[in-house]
């Protein structure tokens, strides 16, 4: 009987969790006039007009492509830089390792707002303003430390004897690392990639500041259109729904490793 009650409570919670998202979906299937005209729990006259507008208007759909590009770049960069570093932290003792690890983490915890102005200056100086590279690079600030943190957790779960055996067998470090070690922690790599994707995808402040038109991502387009169009709720909702889709798809692939990943590989 007790388990029954728990399950009901959990279902109620999930209902509450889904409700705001459902409401946005509901709005996205109605026209603005319809939304402001009357209150309805579900779209009585569903229309895809908002979605069609987004998929046919280049300022909207290129914004999605821009976001995908820099998120992809950031994920690859973060993994490439974090993998060797995480290996070093999980296997070796070296001068300043504790301090280095903590310093890296402080960047994950630094208020992005602090870096706003210097970034404008820095990226203008090196001519990267309004490029995908600028945003990808800026997101490395928090994603590389996070990736190192998670990967280090996963790597520490692999016994060191494996490394020792491989080195005795005459493997060079790069060959061992790529052909033996990375496949061993592939779940960890997948989870880390998911986290890099996620934090780059949801970030607004840097993405908005470092782009003007060429690389403007969807999150920035949404904030800028709020005032310009005089609040087209239907369109805004449709754009919002579309930003959830990639995340939802990615979750599905890592669902079995999610919990461990959120615990930074430490359970």
């Amino acid at each position: 009987m007790k388990i029954q009650k728990r399950t009901i409570a959990l279902c109620v919670y999930f209902g509450v969790l889904i409700l705001p998202i459902y409401w946005m979906l509901n709005m996205s299937l109605r026209t603005n006039a319809d939304i402001l005209g009357y209150f309805a729990l579900y779209p009585k006259d569903p229309t895809f007009a908002n979605y069609i507008k987004i998929f046919t208007d280049p300022t909207w759909y290129t914004a999605y492509i821009n976001a995908m590009i820099y998120v992809g770049m950031n994920t690859v960069m973060s993994l490439a830089f974090a993998l060797p570093a995480a290996y070093a932290f999980s296997r070796y003792k070296f001068i300043g390792d504790g301090q280095m690890f903590f310093w890296l983490l402080t960047n994950r915890m630094a208020p992005p707002a602090v870096f706003l102005l210097p970034y404008l200056q820095l990226y203008s100086t090196i001519n990267l303003m309004d490029t995908h590279m600028a945003v990808a690079l800026a997101h490395c600030l928090f994603n590389v430390p996070l990736a190192i943190w998670i990967l280090e957790g996963f790597m520490s779960g692999i016994p060191k004897e494996i490394d020792e055996t491989a080195f005795i067998d005459g493997y060079s470090f790069p060959r061992f690392f790529i052909t033996i070690f990375i496949p061993l922690i592939r779940a960890g790599v997948g989870v880390t990639a998911f986290f890099c994707f996620m934090f780059s995808w949801v970030e607004l402040l840097f993405a908005r500041t470092l782009t003007i038109t060429e690389a403007k991502p969807i999150v920035a387009t949404m904030t800028r259109t709020i005032s310009a169009t005089g609040l087209d709720w239907g369109l805004l909702a449709a754009a919002g729904v579309l930003t959830i889709v990639p995340g939802g798809l990615v979750i599905w692939f890592v669902r079995n490793h999610l919990a461990k990943g959120f615990a930074l590989g430490r359970v």
Binding site: P20, V202, L204, G240, I244, V250, I251
Partner: peptide, 18 residues
């Protein structure tokens, strides 16, 4: 797990919009 993780992958300003 999938339902729980869903709010976490929504861009932060879209959370505001929602």
């Amino acid at each position: 797990l999938v339902i729980l993780a869903l709010p976490l992958v929504i861009p932060w300003n879209v959370i505001g919009t929602i």
